[in-house]
Amino acid sequence: MEKERNHKRQQRVSLSTVEWQAVMDHLTRNADVIAEFESMVPEWISALVGNQGSSIKHRNGTDIIPDIDRNGNVKSGLPYSLTEFQLGTARRKELLSMTKQIITEDHINQTKFQTESCSLENDVALKFGCPIQVVGISRACCRLVACPRLNLDASRIDTNCYHITKQGELVNSPGKSQSSDNHKFQMYWGTCSSTLIDLTNTLPTSQYWEIHSDVGVIKGWWRIVLDFGVVEEAQVDRERWVCYQPRSWCVCLEDCDIHNGVCAKVFKEKEHVNCFPDAVALTSGTQATLHYGVVLDVGRGRVSFIDLNREIVLGKFDVVFRESLYPVFGVTPRWDRYTVRMKLVSGEDIAMTETKRDLIYKAVS
């Protein structure tokens, strides 16, 4: 009987250890997105590793990190209660009540965070004259992101190859001339924003805009399909594509022999940094809609690119900018190979989502 009792006790200890470790592993993996524990992370790691006799409580008083006696036995806390429930020694009503309290309080806190962030966005937007987004709320590390109004500069494009529609789309087909030849770009296959981004701008921290493009494959296989990014003012019209220009940071959609398709390639100052395959399939008749975002922080010296379709950060670079910057937007002149319609989305036209906030936060962190 004593042997059987010891065996059951050992089973209970093993079960408690497994349950506790599973909970701790889950919290560790998700600590940056679980509002419940984000302010406690350093404390509960310290409590678990360095101070076995301590206890941390939820805001409503429920023990999260359990009390542990000198023999290492868990005496209280949510993981302990879960273990006791599985062993049949805790009542379902008690566990359910405690869990409901935690969930209810977290919902209240999340609502409070969202209300406060909306109020902050509105107040700052009135001051700076453009929409302001707050990212990092769920991580208790907020950052302000401005969404200034940007427009494609129709006076810069070569109308023998391109035109800008009434809807503000840059299209790779001829259009009517809208400016004198001496104002058009002589080299770059595209245009820039009509607004130069000054290094002394007073907007808070980062700025954000998006590029939405519809690409159709006719024959394919003609080098670069489109590009976008930022380039220092003096370098903006030095080459056909921004990726070949010095002091530039960009994403190019380019035919790729290695991956046998159109890949999203990231460049910094003419250097190819990374390649993301399968942006567009190289099959005649293929139609693809692509959504990208650019996050620029001239104060900190960082530029980042995100793929909104794949929900990933393509690249982020820390830079010492020397001159004011132009956002640039290029499309292939070979309309017989690809059809391209590129739209710059900025200001109030940006439809912000929690997924975008999360990607922007990753880009600026």
Score class of each variant (00 low, 15 high):
T115C: 01
S97N: 10
H107L: 12
V49Q: 14
K127F: 06
E121R: 10
I102C: 10
I64V: 15
T99F: 09
G53Y: 15
Q110S: 04
R59Y: 10
D123H: 05
L27S: 01
S39C: 04
S119I: 06
L82W: 14
Q52S: 06
V41A: 08
D69C: 11
I65N: 03
L95C: 07
A35W: 14
I45K: 11
S81A: 12
T104L: 11
Q114V: 03
N71Q: 15
L87K: 10
A125I: 00
R91C: 00
M40A: 08
G72P: 14
F85L: 11
N60D: 15
N51Q: 12
N71L: 12
Q114R: 11
I45N: 06
V41K: 13
Q86S: 06
I56D: 03
E43P: 00
R70Y: 14
Y80Q: 11
G61P: 08
E84Y: 01
E84C: 06
A47F: 14
I102G: 07
Q101M: 14
G61A: 06
T28Y: 05
F85N: 03
N109D: 07
T28H: 10
T111N: 04
E36G: 14
L95R: 04
K93P: 02
M98H: 01
P131D: 05
L48E: 13
R29K: 09
N109S: 00
T89C: 05
L82P: 02
N60R: 13
L87R: 15
I103M: 14
Q86N: 05
K93Y: 14
T104G: 01
K112S: 00
L126H: 05
M40R: 13
P79I: 03
L96W: 13
N71K: 15
E38W: 09
F113K: 08
L27W: 12
M40K: 15
S119N: 03
L96N: 09
D32C: 09
P131Y: 08
A35S: 12
L95M: 13
R59F: 08
W44S: 02
E36S: 12
V41Q: 09
F85A: 04
H58W: 14
L48D: 12
P42T: 03
D67H: 11
P131M: 08
S117G: 00
E121I: 01
T99G: 05
M98A: 06
L96H: 10
Q101F: 04
D63N: 09
S97C: 03
N51P: 00
I45M: 10
